[in-house]
């Protein structure tokens, strides 16, 4: 590869690494709210520190969300690719990736964090 190409790639990789670093700078404490959104409307909100399992209706049979010790993941979904279940556990301490289930039109994301 040419020198110019190495520079462009280096800038992209550095920017992504810096963004990741800032995403992981979130300490774990109470006051978090996670929202489950179907289409445009929020159908359920939960506190990630309260353990529970609940069902959410979706376009292809819906899915179950299991919340345990500040982390949450999707189980029992009936999607063709199982992308949302394969994303595994998401937690306030290590990541803020939204869990996205395109076939069900559902997205699960961290809505509020303590200041």
């Amino acid at each position: 590869m040419k020198k110019r190409e190495w520079i462009i790639l280096g800038v992209i990789v550095l920017a992504a690494a810096a963004a990741l670093f800032f995403l992981h700078q979130r300490p774990q404490k109470s006051g978090y709210t996670v929202a489950v959104q179907r289409g445009d409307t929020i159908v359920q909100e939960f506190d990630p520190l309260k353990d529970q399992t609940f069902h959410v209706d979706g376009d292809v049979g819906g899915l179950d969300v299991e919340v345990k010790e500040g982390k949450w993941h999707v189980i029992h979904e009936k999607c063709p690719n199982h992308v949302c279940a394969n994303m595994g556990w998401m937690g306030i301490s290590d990541t803020i990736l939204p869990i996205t289930c395109i076939p069900n039109n559902i997205i699960i994301y961290l809505k509020e964090s303590p200041e």
Binding site: A16, Q37, P98, T100
Partner: peptide
């Protein structure tokens, strides 16, 4: 497209992972 489709800018948090994975 997902940001537009779900009107959910939060999905942008996935971009750094995707960018590093795309290389």
């Amino acid at each position: 497209v997902v940001m537009f489709f779900y009107r959910q800018p939060g999905i942008a948090a996935i971009l750094p992972y995707l960018l590093l994975g795309s290389v």
